[in-house]
Design a protein around this nucleic acid. Sequence first.
DNA 1: TCTGGGGTCCTAGGACCC
DNA 2: TCTGGGGTCCTAGGACCC
Length: 429
Amino acid sequence: MPTEPHPALVAHVDVNSAYASFERVFDPSLEGVPTVVLSNNDGCVVAASKEAKALGIPLGEPWFKLQPRAAMTGLQARSSNYELYGDMSRRVMEVLERFAPTLQYSIDEAFLLLGPRSAETDLAAFGREVKDTLRRLVGVPVCVGIARTFTLAKLANRTAKKLPVFDGVCVWDSTRPEWRDALLARLPVSEVWSIASRLERRLAAQGITTVAQLRAADPVAIRARFNVVVMRTVLELAGTPAITLEEERIGKEQLIFSRSFSEPVTSREGMRQVLSVYGQQAAARLVRHHQKAKLLTVFAGTSHFAAQRDFPNMLVPLAAPTSDPVVLAKAAGRILPLLHEGTRYARAGIMLTDLRPADGQCAFEPFRFRHEDEGIAELVDQVNRKLGGGSVGLGHGGLRPGPQWQMKRQKLSPRATTHWDELALVKAG
DNA sequence: TCTGGGGTCCTAGGACCC
DNA sequence: TCTGGGGTCCTAGGACCC
């Protein structure tokens, strides 16, 4: 007799304390040790291992506050090594693809589209196999949540992470309904994907504070009082799929290159240099994505904590879609007159929007002079990729070693998977 | 002294067109 | 001369994500 199929199911998989786990793969001395990964400039904590969280270290905590206690608590810190994490992420996604069609959602999480399964499928066993395989092949710990909607799969994953009985795998519909209801009646709405502090406050004003209450709310009334996003969340909590996630999109809609400085930039001349370099970096990324931009936004800012605060920004339309570093750097420089000499700017950035494919044929593309050709961007990018970043650059961008304001990463681990000279060494002894 | 960086989606409102 | 409504496109801003 044929068994009833489950409705379409999704599995949510994510790497536990991702950046810290990636660091541990090539540095076993960190195993079991409280470990944090720091933001650029070694500013604040962006990832904390289980042991570090047990010490009560919240994400976002500035490193200068933790450092004094570090020796005493055995806390280890690493600068963020995005090249390593990006490559480890790629490995994780490759393994996941073996199990089911995969939608990558972020650097460390993905949804597996399981489709309908027969009721006899042992979903828990499937989840455990995913988990064990990633541990064996990539070396990272993950948790798995399986449910009928994206939102519930996220919630199941969170449950698997928090409650040891699940041992890292939670199949939502296999838990007892009374138990589930009791759990949701205890959880605050902010535990739900897409509900953060602002919405939490507004929902509380309507008397909705727990996940159970949100699930029971009338979707139409929610749509009227909030918006479609919250309505979809209500539907998803009740088991009705309402969110669509796109396949990996080809090309992005915007590109941001933004950095804070290791020490403040206080002069227009200094900022001209910064923006020249950032313009070239942004151009390099455009070229890598095979895109051109039509609109550039340039911004600078002091620290939010500074006495004298200033956040100038400017929109610069570009005459034609371009990825030319010279054009972008020059356009970014247009903000300079807005800056106040002597103000301590802590960061600057460039945002490129109205992006389009570089090879796209545009019937009305205006005639361009030779020097505005994309050739320069390509050439600079190729040379830098072959010989290392900063080998060539235009104007101020050619400086090497890096200038004073450049990002500080004093605790950087080797890029063990993407550079031959930084491979991990294993000694037999 | 020292507090990240890179994205997406939705909505409201204005400009403009028919 | 005066009047109406509906549609599209764009942008800024708010909110969220990891």
